[in-house]
Amino acid sequence: MTAASGRPRRADAERNARLLLTAARELFDEQGPGAPLDEIARRAGVGNATLYRHYPTRGDLLVAVYADEVAALCDQGAALPAETAPGEAFFTWLDAFAVHVATRRTLAFAGTESDGDRRTELFERWHSALTSTAERLLARAQDAGAVRGDVTVTEVLALANAVAASGADPARVRRLLSIVRDGLT
């Protein structure tokens, strides 16, 4: 990570930022996006000033947590082809994507509700990164004959989003996605 000045962060500052993101993610999971910022700083083992130096507003912290999760999902998509067969890599990632959308929707919206322009820019970046990841995995699975060749990434992501919209229960999302998988293979 880099500081706002464009210079790399000092090691202790980078560590504090990571501690804050971890604590925020845990508390947002437990209490929702309205979790007390003081509690996040306490759980991270830093002072409030450190929290506000890294994340001046609740929205900044929410965006950082969600952006970190999108990056992790994209990283997972990049790593899967090296360790998994094309079809399995695609469906493993699609499962993670659908569960992510189902369980993190509130966090994504909470971090980007205040400024319409900001929301559009952030959502476009996140959408683009996730779509690119899905495209690579889908093309590989289609080339291997593991997924129908007549479906597009837009169609597959629309189906995954529809499944995710059915509720935040990961077991239900996975069950419905298994039905979609049957139709895609």
Rank of each mutant, 00 (worst) to 15 (best):
V70P: 02
Q76I: 07
A78V: 08
A78W: 03
A78Y: 11
A78S: 13
A79T: 11
P81H: 12
A82S: 14
A82W: 06
P86K: 05
P86F: 01
G87R: 05
G87N: 05
F90P: 11
F90A: 00
F90Y: 15
F91W: 09
F91E: 02
F91T: 04
L94E: 07
F97H: 15
V99D: 03
V101E: 10
V101W: 03
A102G: 10
A102P: 04
R105M: 10
F109C: 09
G111V: 04
E113M: 07
S114H: 06
G116T: 12
G116A: 13
T120C: 07
L122C: 07
L122R: 03
E124Q: 11
E124S: 14
R125L: 08
R125G: 07
H127R: 06
S128Y: 00
S128D: 02
A129P: 05
A134Q: 08
R136C: 14
L137Q: 14
A139K: 13
R140Y: 11
R140F: 04
Q142Y: 06
D143W: 04
G149S: 15
V151Y: 05
T154F: 02
A158Y: 00
A160G: 14
A165G: 13
S166P: 01
A168P: 04
D169I: 00
D169C: 01
R172N: 05
V173S: 04
